[in-house]
Design a protein around this nucleic acid. Structure first.
Lengths: 231, 231
DNA sequence: ATTACTAGTAGACGAGTAA
DNA sequence: TTTACTCGTCTACTAGTAA
């Protein structure tokens, strides 16, 4: 999102524009953004055009509300700040073992996916996945993880069916190397697919309903430009 | 902070610029900010001028690090997002009763402060305060509270000594109306002064070392422009 | 390679004003 | 009072280039 939009949208969110229509004149918005009435009016038109706002233009005062798309953009920025201030190099997700809807394992164990796992992760995955339903209080963490790069596994087509891109993040479960896999699209998902070189249910003696901790590695993929401890 | 600075500073923070010097050329920064090398170079000079960055301009590549002032600015924005996505109309702070360093009660019970409390809060405070040391895990919440308006109680001078502005936020302790008072300046403080119309130690039968929950009210001070439930 | 100057230009901004 | 148009100004950007 363009930074000039982000600033205005954030102010509107602080006035309650996520949950409610907010009655605010372009004059007032201009004041709180330290710009003229004319510019604030233009900014609102731009935000409407970008579909980040909806408006109810009454006779006296306009009432504006942030759209879901707008909230998404704000949430992206929020997640960036969380990465800055909350996260270190790894995140622990609490979750519960479940049996997928039959779909999950079918998807991920497709050959084209599996071959890429072997290349991009450092192990040949076992032909099957472990489904973990992430605890509600850790869904925010999952969102932050999803906003980070990860290993993109390219999608493909087969029998007229589309298999989308998925993203893999290296992780550990009970100190065993594995990776969590999430679809690139469709957020607000609470289900993880875990791939591992071992049959995890057998190796760890775990079953449906068991609670597990998955430690996801967030250290940068490529060697980055950070230099440590130079004063 | 000017929004154009915020955007660049955030990107640098994501590269690790808070804890370490980051080696990044103006070309690279320009790419990640979607602007030219020249503009990125200028932006860095501006951030240096604003004292949000320090630089170590080596022969090959510059190395930059965010100053404490810069981190403060980023934290302000982080707190805004927390208000948007985390907080509702009240926050619960966990803390422990302590005896202040003798100073706290002396400050707050000064007449000019006390008279303003009576006007801006809805009760005449008891001549004494309760000191609460906020639990470490709730210091973030306190920071968010401090970034919100609150009731400003003007400072004054007396006997050549300066008593600074303080901010009061309405709160409840064990369902009794009270207010927390914090100095306007000097952040990263973990001590609260509680003022109340009652003698809280006696009324609640609490003593040093007792854990308490203080529920701080965050609903807007003035009647705001929010309109609820208009689709 | 770098960083960062100068010059020219596109676009953001606010004043005036209409509806 | 509103919102939002046109238009002139001025800022913020990029291209070219020096060090």
């Amino acid at each position: 999102m363009d930074e000039k939009y982000s600033f205005a949208l954030r102010k509107i969110a602080l006035l309650g524009g996520i949950n409610n229509y907010v009655a605010i004149s372009s004059r007032e918005l201009g004041e709180s953004l330290e710009m003229s009435q004319q510019s604030a009016s233009k900014r609102i038109l731009e935000l409407l055009d970008e579909k980040y706002l909806v408006r109810d233009l009454g006779a006296r005062k306009q009432r504006i509300k942030i759209t879901d798309a707008g909230v998404d953009e704000l949430r992206k920025e929020y997640n960036e700040y969380r990465r800055i201030f909350e996260l270190t190099d790894h995140v622990t997700l609490r979750g519960r073992i479940v049996t997928g809807m039959g779909e999950g394992g079918y998807y991920i164990t497709q050959r084209p996916y599996m071959e890429q796992f072997q290349g991009k992760l450092d192990f040949k995955p076992f032909e099957g996945t472990l489904n973990v339903k992430v605890a509600k209080e850790d869904l925010g963490k999952l969102e932050v993880i999803r906003s980070m790069p990860g290993h993109v596994i390219d999608g493909f087509e087969k029998d007229g069916r589309t298999f989308g891109n998925v993203i893999a993040y290296k992780a550990k479960i009970h100190n065993i190397d594995c990776a969590i896999v999430v679809p690139e699209r469709s957020h607000y998902e609470d289900m993880l697919e875990l791939v591992c070189k071992y049959h995890l249910r057998r190796t760890l003696s775990i079953n449906d309903g068991d609670d597990v901790d998955v430690v996801v590695d967030l250290s940068p993929l490529s060697s980055e430009n950070q230099i440590s401890c130079v004063p």
